[in-house]
Amino acid sequence: MPPMIDPSLFDQIKSKIEEDTTVRKELEQIVDELHQHVSFTQGLLSKIHSTPRSKYATLLPQVEEGIKSQVATVGKLSAFASQYPYYKYNHKWTRPLQDSLSTCLLFTWLSTHTLLTPLQLATYYSVPLNLTAQDDAFHITTEEYLLALVSIIDDLSRLAMNSVTLGDTALAVEISAFIRDLHAGFQVLNLKNDILRKRVDSIKYAVKKVEDVVYDLSLRGLIPAAGAEDEKKGE
């Protein structure tokens, strides 16, 4: 009569569980490292709220350095994580990765007033973007891109206010136009009742905040002439 449990089964399963544990520990280390770079860069970026644009020339290169360290760590993460099923461990890094992506999106917008597309962002990080079902590897997901975008909207709405305090009303107007366009973009999406929906719902508050700032400016005739075309209409 055969035994109840195949004698080799135990060792087989045990070694798989141990391997899983090792992978998780390794991932945690890399994710920690990413987290540190992200926090540092976020901290640097928080200075934009008190730095006039004329001083960006010294601030932004520092930010870029921080982003480069992040990109290097993401490269490490990508190489390691691609050995395993992507969605098995994805939850371990998705938050810090989103934060990292948003520092990069914010940085590029501040420096060039352009929004990196998902493909440009993936290229910047040298990781793949869209994978067919057959390649199971590290990549930036659509959700991660969108969530990162939501968080720069938050940041920019704050900057709109602070830029006025710093006397740079033109920046507030530029931010307003950008956020309004993004808001319209997000309304194109069909969202389910998930985290993305929850975060996207918060965009309207950012829009309102910035519109209020622009309204205050226009009320007092403080909108600079060049950007005046875009004057806020009451709705």
Binding site: P118, T142, E143, L146, A184, G185, Q187, V188, N190
Partner: peptide, 18 residues
């Protein structure tokens, strides 16, 4: 009508999410 530089990109993303 809400149509701007970002609309095409968001439409692609919408299709992926759908």
């Amino acid at each position: 009508v809400v149509q701007n530089q970002f609309t095409p990109m968001f439409e692609t993303l919408r299709d992926e999410l759908d």
